[in-house]
Nucleic acid binder design. Structure first.
Lengths: 123, 123, 123, 123
DNA sequence: GTGGTCTAGACCACA
DNA sequence: GTGGTCTAGACCACG
């Protein structure tokens, strides 16, 4: 639940990613209610406006829905989680492969690189 | 030599990355003179100040040296390229592994994911 | 808060030095918020970009931290001030001693020279 | 005889300083002929234009004289060395005292600082 | 309102 | 010609 204030990725997207990851890891489920903007702001120690933006962004992507007066909920649409997992996995892999190719590494070296770092800490 | 003007990564860092990649791929060598700030600005179609910043950043990282009135050169220090390659590779791999772990995937699934995407285009 | 526009030392570094000096003289404390880039630009009568550069440089040295949208703050890390004072003092002394030695003066003559000039104005 | 290519002090002045120091240390005497611009450029590994400028500057200060077709010589005027030594010493001391005062140090601390660093290497 | 990036254009010292 | 600094002014994402 830590934000990197110096990353080029905006904080509001970092927080969205964290929620996506929790969904994919089954720590969160379709239909679950997310903390209120205020509550979430306290938990993550960022400005409520930032959380507002996180929620808007997730709504735009169809991952959550806001119900007036009730709060923000994970969309119940079938397959939402699998879709998300599929999408995130693809993005991460594609980005990885592209960067490694730019470094001139072969597929074998990529696999090797992962073996070497797979034991690394969570940062 | 194309920049993505809409990426969240600043142009001046994108250009630095491109130079790093060319170094690692042996298209550029220690001791080589980089194009002058103005020349590079024309090639990359950005403002000279942006290139200035690229070069400053690379100097800060010890990859290049500037000699007043003469130009900017790749550092001649032995091992600079391997060091750089090592560092860039590590960064990319660690980031990948971390993200995949956050998606709850095992090492096997990571390797599989790469196999699936390794044939993808260069961007 | 005056800058010397004709010094060979860049303005952005002169301003950084002034802030360092204020920190060391306890006129500024860890955790303090510095004036915003624009505000500082007005105070020092230079362009905001110049202040931006001052702040970047200080961040690079670990003296300040910027929090996006909030401002720039003196780093809270313990010992930051003593470290800085120590470093600045060392730099000044070493440079002095080196130059005096190049003039062929003995330690006694150095001490004497200081006695003679210690009453001089602050510039 | 080393130049610092990254100092804010221009190379041509660094070289002038080195000559001044040699004069003051009696390694060089009034009436001595300095190496030709070309020769000096080779010795110091800088561009001949830079040496040209060094010589011009020293001439402007009355330390050297150029005699057409013969070369550049240290001025023979009486007292030139003592004057120079006096001036350089004063400049170095004043600058030192000013900087130390800006750091909020007392005269005692200055003397102490020198004691501590007087044994330090020549850089 | 905050910092960050970028452009355009200028001037300078240096080589 | 080279890099370095500075200004002016703009736009942007973020908080």
């Amino acid at each position: 639940m830590k934000q990197d204030f110096h990353s080029s990725k905006p904080i509001y997207l970092q927080i969205a990613d964290q929620i996506f990851f929790r969904l994919v890891r089954k720590e969160l489920f379709p239909g679950d209610k997310l903390p209120s903007v205020r509550e979430m702001a306290i938990q993550t120690k960022v400005n409520p406006n930032t959380i507002q933006r996180t929620y808007s962004e997730m709504e735009r992507l169809g991952i959550v829905e806001t119900r007036r007066g009730q709060g923000t909920f994970i969309t119940e649409k079938a397959g939402i989680v699998d879709e998300l997992k599929e999408r995130l996995t693809r993005e991460v892999c594609e980005s990885f492969v592209m960067q490694m190719k730019e470094l001139g590494l072969t597929k074998e070296e990529m696999l090797e690189g992962i073996e070497k770092h797979a034991e690394g800490g969570r940062k």
